[in-house]
Simulated assay, not measured.
Amino acid sequence: MPLKETLEVTADKFLANDQKKTTIIQGNVHIKKGKDTLTANKVIIYTNNKRKPTKYEAIGDVHFHLFTEDGREVKGHSDRLIYDALKQEYRLLQNAVVNEVGKVNSVKGEEIILSKEHGYADVLGGKDKPATFIFDMEDIQKEQKKQKAKKHAKQQSKP
């Protein structure tokens, strides 16, 4: 049976509102869930009727460090971040940057949608700020060679 992940939150101030189903966390907010971390000036946690978090909204000087299910390590920052706990999807808004740790791969835009579970990133640019992608072509070429080798091996093994 897998271990249950805990959510550790530290901040200067916590304000819970059961009627609105929100918890507002302010000042030096640091959230840790497993190996993933998030820091921001303010975080609003939205919960369902069973008090389970459904959405997190981080505002101001947002920085995060997370590990995708396919084993990649990603760091980034933005002015605002919305995490959909049900979809395991991050929406980075305004001045968003995502970097893959240990690689040159980088994405910049006004909105980046990052799926922790599926490992994809959708990027939108703004009116005066186009989306920017920086990729390590050597990594892409290595992956293409692997795919060609697999395809060739399959063709060779056919009678």
Rank of each mutant, 00 (worst) to 15 (best):
R72T: 09
E73R: 08
E73A: 11
E73Y: 07
V74A: 01
K75I: 07
G76S: 05
H77L: 09
H77Q: 13
S78N: 04
S78K: 02
R80F: 06
R80N: 07
R80T: 10
L81E: 01
L81H: 00
L81G: 01
Y83C: 03
Y83E: 00
D84E: 07
D84G: 05
D84W: 00
A85H: 04
A85D: 09
L86V: 15
L86C: 10
K87I: 12
K87L: 13
K87C: 14
K87N: 13
Q88T: 13
Q88M: 12
E89A: 07
Y90I: 05
R91V: 04
R91T: 06
L92G: 01
L93P: 04
L93S: 02
Q94K: 10
Q94P: 00
N95S: 12
A96L: 00
V98K: 00
V98Y: 01
V98P: 00
N99S: 10
N99W: 00
E100Q: 07
E100V: 01
E100F: 03
E100S: 03
V101N: 00
V101R: 03
G102W: 03
G102C: 02
G102P: 00
K103L: 05
K103Q: 11
K103T: 06
K103V: 01
V104E: 09
N105Y: 03
N105Q: 05
S106H: 05
S106G: 08
S106I: 04
V107M: 01
G109R: 02
G109I: 02
G109V: 05
G109K: 03
E110W: 00
E110M: 07
E111G: 03
I112C: 00
I112F: 02
I113R: 02
L114C: 03
S115W: 02
S115C: 08
E117I: 08
E117P: 04
H118C: 06
H118E: 12
G119S: 11
G119T: 07
Y120Q: 06
Y120D: 10
Y120F: 14
D122I: 13
L124M: 12
L124Y: 14
G126Y: 10
G126T: 08
G126M: 07
K127W: 06
K127G: 06
K127C: 09
K127Y: 07
K127L: 12
D128Y: 08
K129T: 13
K129I: 08
K129Y: 07
P130V: 08
A131Q: 05
T132C: 09
F133P: 05
F133L: 15
F133W: 11
F135Y: 13
F135V: 05
F135Q: 05
D136L: 04
D136H: 02
D136W: 01
D136V: 03
M137R: 14
E138D: 14
D139T: 06
D139H: 04
D139K: 06
Q141M: 08
K142M: 15
E143H: 10
Q144H: 14
Q144I: 14
Q144E: 15
K145R: 13
K145T: 15
K145N: 11
K146P: 04
K146E: 15
Q147T: 10
Q147M: 13
K148E: 12
K150T: 09
K150R: 12
K151G: 09
K151A: 15
K151L: 15
H152K: 13
